[in-house]
Design a protein around this nucleic acid. Structure first.
Lengths: 350, 350
DNA sequence: CTACTTCTTGAAAGCGCTTTCACAGAATAA
DNA sequence: TTATTCTGTGAAAGCGCTTTCAAGAAGTAG
């Protein structure tokens, strides 16, 4: 029996033509064993005789049986799914992390479920709720604006891994950047090149990372004995346009400067454009440093000096950690360090 | 009854503390009606008296009941989920489309499920199978390398929308770019500026879009009476590095040219870098045109002349179409047209 | 040869929800 | 008044799978 469900073969993938799904019962009758035995060989959960095992596998093959994940999920109470909250599906840096997460999940039997938060606490919480509703077995949250309190509660009921987000009680399950150190390195690099009037275009200062980068910048100046000039610090919002605005502002004010450290590459691109429009050369007239080392930064003119963070690996680590957490292990996350990538947008101050 | 499941309230979102899920049965007993009645009010499927309706809603509220999607999916045979196959989670242009898809799905009760194909037929088919296994109600496929035959089979059993991918029988359910026209426009633009030696860096020529763009380029030349020079046509692979390689190649061969049309922006960036390294100015010495109008292209130095495609809207349309298809409607997709965006990377030939 | 494990197996009880069925009671028609 | 149609409702039967339980077969020990 069971042969009444029409099949068609194509490139090795067999597709059931009738929308009628093939169930375990079908393969049970087809191979002459009980439902439970089929389940056992499929899950390798218990001993099953060689012959029956073979019979079942043959039937599975022949009928191209595919388990119904809903039924499995319902029966098991687990979904083999991990929720991933990103902020914006096309935010370059986060995408690189996502890539790593995908890679880390590949072949583990777990699939990712995405949702985006758009950096807004309410949307983020709604998205997380949505993921939870879909019975994810664990949750990876990239950055974001939700309250620590909310995240703590989530962590209390589900395996949770945070990426680039500091929540005091949850640091052991967080993949962290060293934003302070990175910004320090960037600024220090400019100082070593002889720059004194160093502009900093910050990120959105409500975000922890933007704040830390600013602190790194300030600390580097202080350590070099360079007085802080508030006129050189402009608040941006992490997207290109705010970089051009910042530079425009500087010119409008008649502010002198010889170098710019932008809190991310995208704003550095914007700054670059504003300088270009004014006919100011990089790095001859002004040195420029970004942050994130987006793929694109190696191809700007000139290629951008920036701070590299191993986004892909961080994603992988996040994936591995969440799997470990789901499996009941204690997480153990080695810290990632920021690294200065010197390209051609910085030069000695003349 | 039902009150024994501990709850905690936080910012309006109520989170069950015990991992014990609250089920419909809980709210049924809590509100003193039967399971079926609860289902009815939750789904609004049949008439229920005002009082019971209120009682149920109150209980739902009080216990913060959240339906179990697996149980729902199993019982309904539908998942309220649409699968989205993209090629690479961090491919800029596809991401913009994804963004549109997300926006189109938002608030419809349907959630997206992503998978990536990495432009390889085998991975793509595996990913599609994975989405199918997860019982998606419909499928949106962005580009890709799977056989037409495979896609036709999928279309036969599930609602399917193709984006940027031509399959003869399925054009009515495809969101299409006009690659030919776009490339024609780009090339024509260069010709009008007086260029004659126009390089074309193609995409991967196994891809339909790359082929069409090349055809558009050729046609524009032909229409202008400019002889085709095969030495000016180099095959790239859609990523930055292939753009630099192409230009390097040109120089190594001592090939003369005054303009470059790259089959996408990323390769144009690469070409730009190679020119920069040689000290060749854009657009004074060489004009450069890309394709896709990535966000970034407005911020390159100089800002890149390119072909714009309304990626976001296309994503939205794809989402709406798949929802319509799931609802049994006949799809009706208006064609999108490519548009030339003239920025500063092109100038009159001297 | 009996008594006690150990294997292998099928039956059956859920998992949480939707939906059909049947049945009161109310409303309408005759 | 009686016959007929609605309406609102609960019981119960699945959806396809996992897992517990119990039992027969088989192996080991005394």
């Amino acid at each position: 029996m069971g042969g009444m469900k029409a099949l068609s073969y194509s490139k090795g993938v067999i597709v059931s033509q009738s929308s009628q799904q093939i169930t375990m019962q079908d393969i049970a009758t087809q191979s002459g064993v009980s439902l439970s035995t089929v389940s056992r060989v499929l899950n390798g959960s218990e001993n099953v005789s060689q012959e029956k095992q073979a019979a079942v596998m043959a039937a599975v093959e022949a009928l191209n049986y595919r388990p119904n994940v809903f039924a499995q999920g319902l029966a098991r109470g687990a979904s083999r799914t991990v929720g991933v909250l990103t902020q914006h599906i096309s935010a370059p840096f986060f995408d690189a992390i996502l890539d790593g997460v995908l890679a880390g999940l590949r072949g583990t039997g777990y699939s990712p479920l995405f949702a985006d938060g758009l950096w807004r606490a309410d949307r983020e919480e709604r998205s997380i709720q949505l993921l939870l509703d879909r019975q994810v077995d664990g949750l990876i949250v990239l950055g974001g604006a939700t309250s620590n309190c909310f995240l703590r509660e989530i962590a209390a009921q589900k395996p949770l891994v945070l990426v680039g987000r500091v929540v005091p009680e949850l640091t052991h399950q967080s993949v962290l950047f060293d934003d302070f150190k990175g910004a320090y390195l960037a600024t220090q690099h400019l100082i070593e090149l002889g720059h004194r009037q160093i502009v900093h275009i910050t990120g959105i200062l409500e975000h922890e990372d933007a704040l830390l980068r600013k602190k790194g910048y300030l600390q580097a100046l202080e350590d070099a004995g360079i007085p802080i000039n508030d006129n050189l610090i402009l608040e941006g919002n992490f997207v290109e346009q705010s970089g051009v605005l910042a530079v425009e502002m500087l010119f409008n004010r008649g502010q002198l400067f010889s170098a710019i450290f932008a809190a991310n590459d995208q704003m550095a691109y914007g700054a670059r454009l504003a300088l270009y429009r004014r006919g100011i050369r990089v790095p001859e007239d002004v040195s420029l440093v970004g942050y994130d080392d987006l793929v694109h930064s190696a191809y700007t003119t000139p290629p951008l000096t920036t701070i590299h963070q191993p986004a892909f690996q961080m994603g992988e680590v996040a994936a591995n950690t969440i799997l470990g957490l789901i499996g009941g292990e204690q997480p153990e996350i080695a810290p990632f360090k920021a690294e200065l990538i010197v390209r051609n947008s910085t030069a000695r101050h003349r």
